[in-house]
Design a binder for these strands. Structure first.
Lengths: 148, 148
DNA sequence: AGAATACAATTAAATGTTAAATTAACATAA
DNA sequence: TTATGTTAATTTAACATTTAATTGTATTCT
């Protein structure tokens, strides 16, 4: 455990699982995110490009929901993606309150190339696990994530 | 999977494991962090109090290493903890470049009460898993985290 | 229709975060 | 001792993030 904490064996199991889970996700994220800064993208910017790539044009509210970010933040993320020429804001004809965010040609080309590389890096990260272990990990994590 | 991506069964296993792992850690973190904002503490502030509680006075560099945060950031974290009266800066007699961060009485009392509650919340989160599953999760995550 | 309510996006203020530059102090080697 | 290099902390600038307030538009209810 690293600390001097000592509890029942169940407590030890729990804390150990917690620490290892957090460390694994943190270190994988950190390694993946390094490649994002190489192309001058923040995590939120990448997430936005990815979700637009897979789902097509969305309004900012929807993007915020998918990325678990606040509306105020999405405004700035889109501002910065727009400055880089990756997306454009277009008025939603069916709801004049809303703005639909579209990938530009440049944005589509970029994410179309970058995303497969991202997937390869994820595969590389998980190459230390057997197929059986991947399934088990998914099952266990699913239980943890559900617990509202 | 939720997306239209289709690949080999190994690819599907990998991406599913990745997504579930990230979702589990994010949602657990989010639920735990809610309780931090209840007591007006950021994650870094809590991490600092926790590490001081368990390891005793440390200089800022050490704290930054444990928390994986930059030096500039630690300066501000300590500033804000100091404002709230939880810690004090004391000159390190053996190295005049360094400052040792000490918990105050107030800080010690606070973290001494808060930390056990935090542990309880973690136990609660993991109560959906059997002891066997916790061990398995820890083992698998350990492999993922190691892969520098 | 008119009033009240809800919603999308923006803005502003407060805080967190990092990276880079700066300052002060330590360590080492000639 | 002096020069060189390293380390600890701070400061600054740029950006991220959240919350709350604001504006404009939709929706709902009577």
């Amino acid at each position: 455990m690293g600390t001097s904490y000592s509890g029942s064996s169940s407590e030890v199991n729990t804390l150990n699982a917690f620490i290892k889970l957090m460390r694994a996700s943190e270190s994988i994220n950190m390694r993946l995110n390094r490649h994002l800064s190489d192309v001058n993208l923040t995590v939120s910017q990448f997430g936005t490009l990815e979700v637009l790539h897979h789902l097509g044009p969305l309004n900012q509210r929807s993007i915020g929901e998918k990325l678990l970010k606040s509306g105020g933040n999405i405004t700035m993320v889109i501002d910065n993606l727009e400055k880089q020429g990756y997306v454009v804001r277009k008025k939603d004809p069916s709801d004049r309150r809303a703005v639909l965010i579209h990938l530009t040609k440049k944005g589509e080309t970029f994410i179309g190339k970058f995303f497969p590389k991202h997937l390869d890096r994820i595969k590389e990260e998980f190459s230390v696990l057997s197929e059986e272990e991947k399934k088990t990990l998914a099952d266990i994590c699913k239980k943890l994530g559900l617990k509202n």
